[in-house]
Design a binder for these strands. Structure first.
Lengths: 223, 223
DNA sequence: CCAAAAGTGTTATTGATACACCCATGC
DNA sequence: GCATGGGTGTATCAATAACACTTTTGG
């Protein structure tokens, strides 16, 4: 029963932490921010913050994204709530972790962090992070892998129009192993979620690739 | 960044709410408690409560289970954190919802609620609950259904020793449709998780059934 | 001997995997 | 004309789904 009247113990703090993924040069990268204050001063940590009055959890995530990363996420999913009593050395803080996917912009450069003190880091070379943030990132990677197996989660990491080889690359990077081109394309077409844009894109001295788009902009479970 | 120093807005409250499932006479039932206080005085609601200082979220769930239901859960999983600003009409309260499975005791009777003001209710005949608790129960049922498809979640709803027909019944109740006996048993045996106890059980005028046990006491993903 | 649940295999269908060549382009 | 990525189909294997009869017990 959610009863507020009998609180005689101190309220825990509640924060949001975000695991923001993107793909850069065939690597899965996560956005980190350098902590300005104690504890863990100077350590890297996940972008996060407190929830404002009257603000939904999702709205808080979007606000934090804009403040800390200078961008708004294309896909957003609640991950898990971490509440070990000692996870913050100062006081009890419970954090609701979110998984965020940023569309990978073809154009190189503008994906570089917009906010000073932030940096994209490959998940394979993650430093020791503040608080329990390493655990949170691992949990997020696990979730992302699992979802790659049974959903079109790749949509969150791609621009509106993309080549099938881009889509395949996204899944390969998430899963950590190569996929068969013909089987991958067969399966993707079978979902009925892809539509041709009619446009073709030429990169370098190759046969031009058809650009595709997802009919549904939402992440959806396949089969 | 989990920074407590710059809180100038009021902290939200944090609660735990539990969706406690069991199976009674081939029905999936959930434990409800009648609210003694405003708001929603007299309404049914999910067992819940505040988190004590220094208490982990899981420990809080176990404590609430014991207090409100007079029993400890066999399976426990964090469901989702609900934080809509208006979900509690008095003040901002964020709740971390847990899914709990109670082993169905063969012996009829002792599963009846131990604590006054609590009642088991079939999920198909759920009344209008306090707060957003209907939404939480729906979410829990969805999760349970999904897990029935790819895990041995049934373990949480069964006593230590059980007949294969009991196990099948559990899955049928969760999924809401009948399963083929031979295919079900083939699949279950193929997991390698079942072991014969050697004991047989005779109920009524029938051929006695072998009692089985799960080798792993944990819920595990199949395939 | 009858009613009721326990137990047991085979076939058909479906989905997943493995695998190799031609095409269009820029230089 | 050559290097590079784009694009396509078939055969095998594994998993799933459909389906019916015999066994053991108590009454």
């Amino acid at each position: 029963v959610s009863d507020t009247k009998d609180i005689h113990y101190e309220k825990p703090g509640v924060t949001i932490d975000t695991v923001i993924f993107t793909i850069v040069e065939d690597r899965l990268e996560v956005l980190l921010v350098k902590r300005a204050d104690v504890p863990f001063q100077g350590s890297w940590s996940l972008p996060g913050g407190f929830i404002l009055q009257g603000e939904s959890l999702e709205a808080a995530v979007q606000r934090i994204l804009l403040d800390k990363a200078g961008m708004s996420g294309s896909y957003l999913e609640q991950l898990y709530t971490f509440g070990q009593p000692d996870r913050d050395p100062r006081s009890r803080v419970i954090t609701v972790a979110y998984l965020v996917l940023l569309p990978w912009k073809r154009t190189p450069g503008p994906l570089s962090p917009k906010v000073s003190g932030t940096e994209w880091t490959a998940v394979h070379y993650l430093p020791k992070l503040a608080f329990d943030h390493n655990q949170i990132v691992l949990y997020a990677v696990e979730r992302l892998r699992a979802k790659a197996g049974y959903s079109n989660i790749g949509i969150g990491l791609l621009p509106d129009k993309f080549r099938l080889s881009d889509l395949q690359r996204v899944y390969e990077v998430i899963l950590g192993h190569d996929l068969d081109k013909r089987n991958f394309r067969k399966k993707m077409h079978a979902t009925g979620l892809l539509e041709e844009t009619g446009e073709k894109e030429i990169i370098g001295a190759h046969r031009p690739a058809m650009l595709f788009r997802f009919k549904e902009k939402k992440v959806v479970n396949l089969d």
